[in-house]
């Protein structure tokens, strides 16, 4: 018995000490050289612009696939919005502004809505591949209506959870926020209760298979892993599930993965998540 308890404590201790590199201080991972990250950000912008996207959802991963659950390939997503940008020297440039939900650096259980730039996005990318969803023209207009209104802030739930349930109001992560904005635009409502009812009815969540013991350890290891909204298997939202949802209901023009022309891309080991996302 003593030996078993000692082993368990060791496991928990190891898990607690092996914290994610990019979780420590909120700084960009800078896995790749700054110029390469800048080139990749510009590549994404040009890809979106070539396709005439005024707004798109772009997903990146701040960890290698080996460090993610099989069912998840991208760990963060944001809205990219095409806009004229005034520079501090009085010029106007054209490009994309990025709208994110980020959890806090000091308090990782709280989130903010943050606008930054494509370079900020790719500096935190660890894989050299992003997932992209381009809504159809009607949905782009509706999403922009939501983003530009007070509704955008009303759809934000600042209680953050890494694996938040998209059908539960209590917590929200970045993919769920994207889904909520899309749902608000699709159903033309800002009533979060109604949005969750509709998502429950029409959205196929991404399911992460994790046992009871894993769920027991998760919140011990990471404060963001509070799973009060996950009574059974973990159900969450992801690039693949959001892309599939938008495709199923004719809300998107296309979804695809974009591989960097300049970054060394992680070798695909054939895991199921990658295959799932490729289908999306």
């Amino acid at each position: 018995m003593f030996r078993s308890v000692a082993c368990l404590l060791m496991v928990i201790g190891l898990a607690s000490c092996s914290g994610n590199r990019t979780d420590t201080d909120g700084q960009p991972s800078d896995t790749f050289a700054l110029q390469d990250a800048a080139d990749f950000s510009k590549q994404i912008e040009r890809e979106l612009a070539t396709r005439g996207a005024y707004v798109a959802m772009v997903f990146r991963s701040g960890a290698t696939q080996a460090a993610l659950p099989d069912e998840i390939y991208y760990s963060h997503g944001s809205f990219w919005v095409y806009t004229p940008i005034e520079t501090d020297d009085g010029r106007t440039l054209y490009g994309y502004a990025v709208y994110n939900l980020y959890h806090g650096i000091e308090d990782q259980t709280q989130s903010d809505l943050v606008q930054d730039w494509p370079l900020d996005f790719t500096r935190a990318d660890d894989t050299g591949t992003v997932g992209i969803i381009i809504p159809n023209a009607a949905m782009q207009a509706r999403i922009l209506d939501v983003l530009a209104s007070d509704d955008y802030y009303e759809l934000h739930q600042s209680q953050y959870a890494l694996m938040s349930s998209p059908t539960d109001l209590r917590f929200q992560n970045a993919p769920e926020f994207i889904l909520d904005v899309v749902a608000s635009a699709a159903w033309k409502t800002t009533d979060r209760d109604q949005i969750k009812v509709n998502i429950d009815a029409y959205f196929d969540e991404t399911t992460i298979e994790i046992g009871g013991f894993g769920k027991f350890l998760a919140p011990i290891q990471d404060v963001r892993n509070h799973l009060q909204d996950q009574p059974g298997m973990i159900h969450t939202s992801s690039f693949a599930s959001i892309a599939q949802f938008m495709e199923n209901f004719d809300l998107s023009d296309e979804s695809f993965e974009l591989v960097s022309d300049v970054l060394p891309v992680e070798v695909d080991t054939g895991d199921t998540a990658s295959e799932e996302d490729n289908k999306a």
Binding site: H76, A124, L162, I210, L217, D222, N225
Partner: peptide
Amino acid sequence: AFGMALIADSAFAQDQAST
């Protein structure tokens, strides 16, 4: 348990702020 702990630990560098 160790495997699940690692999954939970590294689950996401999710929604990481970049500055």
